[in-house]
Amino acid sequence: MTLALETTDLKVQLRLDGDWLTLCDLSRLLPGRGVAALLPDGRQAALFRDRAGELYAVDNRDPFAGAAVLSRGLLGTHRGRPYVASPLLKQRFDLLDGRCLDDETVRVRTYEVRAA
């Protein structure tokens, strides 16, 4: 089966310093996976969409390994909350508050995102 991706012209936007920054078409986000986006200040954000269509964004950098790869991890659900598992050493990060589920002292930044 092939999933029919929505072909609306909705855009993914991320909130930065009070403004909404347009990053890409919603159709670029495959449910369950992410993409990386470059922010004007040089940071990187990892954007995700879950199977229910919700959007999330966290800092792209894996705080354990240092590489900017969180956008390449797999999404999952833990106790009803969405998370991404790093593709490097598999630590999981809550997508709502950025907390690492496997090491409570570590947290990644989260961003507000929307489809508009």
Partner: peptide, 28 residues
Amino acid sequence: ASGYVLDGEQAALQDSNDHFLANLQKNG
């Protein structure tokens, strides 16, 4: 099912390496 691992939903299931058909190294 499609035999191509990047088709449709299957693409979303693959470990990161399979998703990019290459092996991720420590610096990305």
